[in-house]
Amino acid sequence: MSDKNTPKAIVLLSGGLDSSTCLAIAQSKGFDVYALSFSYGQKHSSELEAAKRVANLSQVSEHRIINLDLGGFGGSALTDEGIEVPTENDPDNSDEIPATYVPARNTVFLSIALAWAEVLEAEKIFAGVNAVDYSGYPDCRPEYIEAFQKMADLATKAGIEGTGVKIETPLINLTKPKIIQLGLSLAVDYSQTVSCYQADEHGLACGQCDSCLIRKAAFESAGIADPTRYR
């Protein structure tokens, strides 16, 4: 049972490497953590199963999974059956926003977290966005987070009263190897996480999508054995 005097924080928890590290950071800072995940129409549920495991192992005060149908709009390789997830064998389009970008996903997720934060009277929302070793999504950039913070301050009762929730992105300027090293120092069990864009029903990673390649390279660069389960 959480202490009513302990400050509360919401952590956006996808079940991946970054969000699991963020959860550990929030707890290390003394926050009573409420984890928030989304079933948004993604093609596989392995990340959500990972989120459940991480939340349970971390003994968060509450873990909620919100059902959304972003897949109904399509437009992303993660939600649209008509769009294939790019792999290392595909042509290099590194200057373009990748097909795995989900339109407005972080804006939707942060907005729902903001609503729950007001109800809980939480002080912080932790999001594991990263602008260094990432896939080039526009809603992972520092200027986006700054703009959302301004909106949150203007759009909420708590913000107007001067007690608005603050968006924390402790990983935004870290390289992926540094994130892994930080997480390990906080006892994050990365074997329980899933980052693959097309993991199978057992949570086994493809090893070829952008997310898998970034994750594999990060463990190698950090000099740490990769605990990811590949198919």
Rank of each mutant, 00 (worst) to 15 (best):
S135K: 01
G136S: 03
G136V: 05
G136W: 07
Y137K: 03
Y137M: 02
P138W: 05
D139W: 09
C140Q: 03
C140R: 02
C140F: 04
C140T: 15
P142C: 06
E146F: 00
A147V: 03
Q149A: 13
K150I: 14
M151V: 15
M151R: 04
A152Q: 08
A152L: 07
L154M: 12
L154Q: 14
T156Y: 09
A158H: 12
A158V: 00
G159V: 11
I160V: 13
E161M: 14
E161F: 08
E161I: 05
T163C: 10
G164F: 12
G164W: 05
G164H: 03
V165G: 02
V165D: 09
V165S: 10
V165H: 08
K166Y: 00
I167Y: 00
P170N: 02
P170Y: 04
P170A: 06
N173Q: 15
N173S: 15
N173V: 04
T175D: 09
T175I: 11
K176G: 08
K176Q: 11
P177V: 07
P177L: 04
I180R: 07
Q181W: 01
L182Q: 14
G183A: 08
G183L: 07
G183K: 13
S185F: 03
S185E: 14
L186K: 13
L186R: 12
A187Y: 12
A187G: 01
A187I: 00
A187D: 15
V188M: 09
V188I: 02
Y190R: 05
Y190A: 11
S191W: 04
S191G: 15
S191T: 10
T193R: 08
T193P: 06
T193M: 05
T193D: 10
V194G: 06
V194E: 07
V194Y: 04
S195E: 05
S195Q: 02
C196Q: 04
Y197Q: 01
Y197V: 06
Y197E: 02
Q198G: 04
Q198E: 12
Q198W: 00
D200Y: 03
E201V: 11
H202W: 03
H202R: 09
H202V: 00
H202L: 13
